[in-house]
């Protein structure tokens, strides 16, 4: 299915948000996630199904003022 990951198109068969993170190299990383503009807590990633057209944001700590 076709997804958007951090603004870039991605073809993936990952059934859940947790599976997508693992497949895309985020395993064990300190990140926060949102799907279609809504925050998805880490505790719900494994039970959050992905559908074609979903837009996923994966954010991590970064410099800030």
């Amino acid at each position: 299915m076709k997804l958007q990951l951090n603004g870039a198109p991605l073809d993936s068969d990952a059934p859940t948000l947790a599976a997508l993170l693992e497949a895309e190299g985020f395993g064990g990383a300190k990140v926060a996630t949102a799907v279609n503009g809504s925050f998805i807590p880490a505790s719900l990633r494994a039970s959050h199904p992905l559908s074609s057209g979903d837009s996923i944001e994966v954010l991590a700590p970064m410099q800030g003022g």
């Binding site: 951090n6 985020f26 990383a29 994966v58 991590a60 700590p61 970064m62 410099q63 800030g64 003022g65």
Partner: peptide, 18 residues
């Protein structure tokens, strides 16, 4: 003060910063 930005699964730059 810190912020959040998009992370790359390849670089994982945010992890070093953290």
């Amino acid at each position: 003060t810190v912020s959040l930005r998009r992370e790359s699964g390849r670089d994982r730059a945010g992890q070093d910063f953290w």
